[in-house]
Design a protein around this nucleic acid. Structure first.
Lengths: 101, 101
DNA sequence: TTATTTGGTTTATATTGTAAACTTATTTAT
DNA sequence: ATAAATAAGTTTACAATATAAACCAAATAA
């Protein structure tokens, strides 16, 4: 009836990050921060969680002497997102009133 | 870009409860419990929260000597659900790759 | 009459989410 | 040259949440 929702994706900020990355090749930390409106701290934590889960790939490098964090969605992340959306649909579609009892 | 999601509805169990109630006149506690697969304790807490928020109406009575908890969605609950679904859609639809930077 | 089931509620704990505080380096202003 | 502000994050402490375990009261079954 109500399939469980992947808790890693059922989080406002993490879902926004994945949703954003699904639509593009890659994105830098500050861009994701701007688009999601998240604080840097929160974003840092959530990116780490997505990365640990293998849903995104994080490439840390330097741009000159400044740190530069690049994020990319992985095939597993894309798959998880698709599954999440599919599951979520069971919650969102209004079922016909087949009265209980 | 990413509208905030009503935290009251962005919860697996509460969303399931509201989703269920949207589709029917009213439902009893045990029925909701069965349909959502929730534990009684968890369900009790979440129903209370939805009720406090005015998203559902809870009618406690007795069936013979046994307690009977009836739940019904309110117009505000229905509205909140519709708004939630609308907001959620911005997260779920894949946007065209308009490369950043 | 004791045990089990039904229909819940309360409460304690574990998990999460989030912002504040901090770090390191870089510009910009004085 | 030095101080102040900005950039790019990370760490950590705290607040909010979710969830199950423990509990209660009544009814039914063994």
């Amino acid at each position: 009836m109500f399939p469980t929702l992947d808790p890693l994706l059922h989080s406002e900020l993490r879902l926004a990050v994945v949703s954003l990355l699904i639509g593009m090749e890659e994105a830098e930390f500050p861009y994701i921060k701007e688009q999601t409106g998240a604080t840097a701290g929160n974003l840092s934590v959530q990116i780490e969680k997505l990365s640990e889960a293998g849903y995104i790939e994080v490439e840390k490098s330097f741009k000159g002497k400044r740190p530069c964090t690049l994020c990319r969605i992985t095939p597993e992340g894309r798959k998880a997102f698709e599954d999440y959306v599919k599951s979520l649909k069971s919650y969102l579609k209004v079922k016909p009133t087949a009265s209980p009892r």
